[in-house]
Design a protein around this nucleic acid. Structure first.
Lengths: 160, 160
DNA sequence: ACTAGTATGTTATATTATAACAATTATGTT
DNA sequence: AACATAATTGTTATAATATAACATACTAGT
């Protein structure tokens, strides 16, 4: 895996990016009148801290190693479910993994570009993709409740 | 689940649809110079026979019950891998399940409409969806190798 | 018939996810 | 502050999905 330059797709400082994401999350939860507990915040931070989608058991491992918190799977899955419900993270079905939502204040579907070399996953916002899917569904008289778009390939950094 | 009218999305006779799919599969394998063995053909038939995406363990269960074949998971997963490689089936990541490919003679990405009421899954071919994804990827200088589009919602039959 | 390659069988185990119930913690009310 | 209630987290067990590793059987070409 090419992990030499893992932040190149997000040129700004990653730490500040995490901090801002966590701040936004606080606001979203306050507005939704739900509790962003210490555990949930920590899980969100870990998901954001990773440059690639993070699996539930990866999160468990970090909690055990860094926090000495011997959590069992349900603890993590419940936190993840909460974060998904609040639109703070997305689940990448093809990877069984989770990634921070780039714009939690505006609920939306996530379309992803997943690099199969370095694992970096980019959330893209494209009205054209969205519209074309909606039109196709309409043709079939199909009522959309959720869209999943996961595009696998090679990111700019990993191209030779 | 609404399973009263499972074939309404595919109005033609389902048996003949399966037969034609299996015939096409034979041709594809002959052309690709690979062997469509009895097991592989049987797994393909089971996938096609189902009106909704079929899990690997569902296939195992049918093999045990109908064929008295006490297969273990690797047997089925290998057959599925083969069928995927030859483009004869698609994998639906969000369901961990498999579905027959509607047009195996022409390799393509599968875009799916998945009904969360009855489970029926429709493969749609849309140049517009395809193009819009390609354009979005191009903007990010991302080189696509595989696209996954899985749209969950309510199919026409299940709408009240 | 022999052999090399392909396919399948078999056993064990890895990985991802949830059910069910117990204990703890936070919140609003008296 | 003490209480009751609801929400959250802990804990144990297990379900569901998938693969590794090696043994056996089959197939096609010589």
């Amino acid at each position: 895996m090419n992990t030499k330059n893992p932040t190149a797709l997000t040129p700004h400082n990653h730490d500040s990016c995490i901090a801002s994401a966590l701040e936004k999350a606080q606001q979203v939860c306050q507005r939704n009148n739900v509790r962003l507990t210490e555990l949930r915040l920590r899980v969100l931070e870990l998901v954001w801290r990773s440059h690639k989608p993070l699996g539930a058991y990866d999160i468990l491992a970090v909690l055990a190693k860094e926090d000495g918190r011997n959590a069992a799977p349900p603890t993590v899955y419940r936190a993840l479910d909460f974060l998904l419900e609040q639109g703070l993270i997305h689940r990448i079905a093809s990877l069984n993994a989770f990634i921070g939502c780039s714009d939690p204040e505006c609920p939306h579907q996530g379309y992803f570009l997943i690099c199969n070399q370095c694992g970096i996953t980019l959330e893209l916002h494209s009205d054209k993709v969205s519209k074309s899917i909606q039109r196709a569904a309409l043709e079939y008289d199909f009522q959309i409740s959720h869209e999943m778009v996961e595009v696998v390939g090679v990111c700019p950094n990993c191209k030779v």
